[in-house]
């Protein structure tokens, strides 16, 4: 299990990275490498070139701008988990970041990497959808912004173009009366989730639920949460019935209901 050879490009700054990516159409961006390098070690991924952005400090910031928390692409999961402002303004994002893999993985894995890899069982793509985040993409010619919900296109597939780098994710700070809850289930803590859910609840019973791990990508559904537990679970079950869950379909759909209910209860407890 050793990676195949590749051309290695180490740009000095983002502009250099974008130029290099344009010049290497078969190249891939290397950030934390926690998803890419395992695939390369298995030789399931053999990029011709790697453009290494892991050292670009301009992508490592977290700032609050215009009612949104802007998180640089290279922010590590552990940083996101521990960051004071993120904890205060987006506690559910902090919580979810703390559930990604294990400590050593969180110390190196990046937000940008997680979103562009788009593993359907990953927490952060779903968090971005649940929190109505905007993904900022750049290429050598400029930038564009894509709502997270339309960024994820399916299993390991996103809207990012070969010449683009995800540079930041903008999470709007939710209104004061909106609360969130997050829950997931994995065989062992740290494993990819078999199912997970974010629940978003407004001041009234309306809100949304974003599942992950149950199909090809994050699944967001608007709904009015019934007060009655049986009715609520039935509503979750009805939504979950649509998912193309692959193997263990019956189990995954039941699990989707369980994690949705757990996330709902946590949202009810009043977390933002």
């Amino acid at each position: 299990m050793k990676p195949a050879a590749f051309e290695y490009v180490r740009p000095d700054n983002l502009q250099g990275a974008l130029a290099a990516l344009r010049d290497h159409p078969d190249g891939k961006v290397l950030a934390g490498g926690q998803s890419l390098i395992p695939l390369m070690n298995f030789r399931l991924s053999r990029p011709q070139a790697l453009v290494d952005i892991s050292h670009l400090t301009e992508l490592t910031g977290i700032s609050v701008v215009d009612g949104a928390v802007e998180v640089g692409a290279l922010v590590r999961h552990q940083q996101l988990h521990e960051h004071e402002e993120v904890r205060r303004l987006l506690p559910v994002l902090s919580e979810a970041a703390g559930e990604v893999g294990h400590w050593a993985i969180r110390n190196r894995g990046t937000l940008g990497g997680s979103l562009t890899h788009a593993d359907p069982a990953a927490e952060l793509p779903a968090a971005a959808v649940a929190l109505r985040a905007t993904v900022v993409l750049a290429n050598a010619d400029g930038q564009r912004e894509v709502p997270a919900e339309s960024f994820f296109l399916g299993f390991l597939t996103t809207d990012i173009q070969p010449d683009e780098i995800l540079v930041a994710v903008r999470f709007p700070v939710p209104p004061a009366d909106v609360r969130y809850g997050f829950a997931e289930f994995a065989r062992r803590p740290g494993d990819f989730a078999l199912a997970g859910a974010f629940v978003e609840m407004g001041g009234d019973a309306s809100g949304s639920i974003t599942w992950f791990g149950v199909s090809g990508g994050p699944e967001r559904r608007e709904l009015d949460f019934p007060d009655d537990a049986q009715a609520r679970k039935a509503a979750f079950a009805e939504l979950a019935a649509e998912f193309d869950t692959g193997e263990d379909a019956v189990y995954r759909r039941k699990l989707a209901v369980t994690v949705a209910e757990q996330a709902y209860q946590k949202a009810r407890e009043g977390r933002r």
Binding site: Y8, R10, L30, G33, Q34, I37, P38, N41, D52, S54, H55, Q78, H102, W103, A104, I105, N107, R108
Partner: peptide, 21 residues
Amino acid sequence: GACTVLVDGEPQRSCLMFAVQ
């Protein structure tokens, strides 16, 4: 986790990092 080393004081996997990085 057997290959874990400390990078700037934090545990990270040395099998998931290229030496050049």
